[in-house]
C-alpha cells in the first residue's frame, strides 16, 4: 500500500515557492550561511522562537508573489491571516479569487462560495503541506521543522532583523524545494520565500495590523 506516501507528498508538493531572498531576489550565497549547530546558534534560535511565540496571537495582511520563468509577470494574490495562540490559523485569500482556509486542531477546512471542504493530505497534498510548514514558521517550531529541514543561520545579521534558511534534508523534499528563507524582526515574521530547484520562486510578505496584539 502506498497510500501513506501522500503524507510525504504533502511536503513534496509545497510547490513552486521560490526564494526571492531577502537581498534583491538573488538569494544569499551558500557561503553566507552556516548550519545552526553550535550552542550559541541554538540559543539564538530559541530566543527568536520565544519572541515569535510571545507575539501570538497575530493577524494582518499577506501578499504572495509567484515568479516563474514561463510567466511574463508574477502572479499576485493577497488576503488576510489570523493566528491564535493555540495554533489555529485563518488564511483568507481575497484576490484574485475569494477563498477561506481555517485550520482548527490540525484539521484544514476550505470555504469556497459557501461550500466547506476538508483538505486532507491525500486530496490536496500541496495545500496540506503548505499549512503544515507555515503553521510551524509563525512561532518557529524548531523540533517540527528540523524533522524535514536543516536549519541555517547567516554569518552576519542586521541589528534588529533575524534570518534563517531551511534546506530539505531528504531527496524527495529537495526535488520540490531548494530552500526556504525566512526573515523577521523581533517577534514578527516578515517574509517567507521558497525557491524551487529551478529558477522559480514564491515570496509571501506579511504586514501586521497595529491592533494585532490583543
Amino acid at each position: 500500500m502506498k497510500w501513506l506516501s501522500v503524507c510525504l507528498l504533502c511536503l513534496l508538493c509545497v510547490n513552486a515557492w521560490a526564494d526571492a531572498s531577502s537581498s534583491a531576489d538573488n538569494g544569499p550565497a551558500d557561503g553566507k550561511w552556516r548550519n545552526a549547530s553550535s550552542a550559541d546558534d541554538q540559543k539564538h534560535l530559541q530566543s527568536v522562537a520565544a519572541q515569535l511565540a510571545n507575539s501570538l496571537p497575530v493577524h494582518g495582511q499577506m501578499q504572495q508573489h509567484k515568479y516563474m520563468a514561463i510567466l511574463n509577470e508574477p502572479l499576485v494574490s493577497s488576503g488576510t491571516f489570523d493566528l491564535k495562540t493555540n495554533g489555529d490559523l485563518t488564511w483568507s485569500v481575497q484576490e484574485p479569487f475569494a477563498v477561506l482556509y481555517r485550520i482548527v486542531d490540525g484539521t484544514i477546512m476550505r470555504t469556497l462560495e459557501g461550500e466547506q471542504t476538508e483538505i486532507t493530505a491525500r486530496k490536496e497534498p500541496s495545500v496540506y503541506g503548505f499549512f503544515q510548514i507555515v503553521g510551524k514558521l509563525f512561532d518557529l517550531q524548531l523540533k517540527g521543522l528540523e524533522s524535514f529541514f536543516t536549519v541555517q543561520l547567516p554569518h552576519s545579521e542586521l541589528d534588529a532583523q533575524w534570518q534563517l534558511r531551511l534546506l530539505p534534508n531528504n531527496k524527495r523534499l529537495a526535488s520540490a524545494i531548494a530552500a526556504i528563507v525566512v526573515t523577521g524582526e523581533q517577534g514578527r515574521l516578515h517574509n517567507v520565500t521558497v525557491q524551487e530547484p529551478n529558477a522559480d520562486y514564491t515570496r509571501i510578505q506579511f504586514q501586521y495590523a497595529a491592533q494585532a496584539e490583543e
Binding site: A16, F97, Y101, E124, V127, G129, V134, D200
Partner: peptide
C-alpha cells in the same frame, strides 16, 4: 490561483 503556494511550471 486560489491555492496558497500556487503551482509549479
Amino acid at each position: 490561483l486560489m491555492r496558497p503556494g500556487g503551482f509549479s511550471a
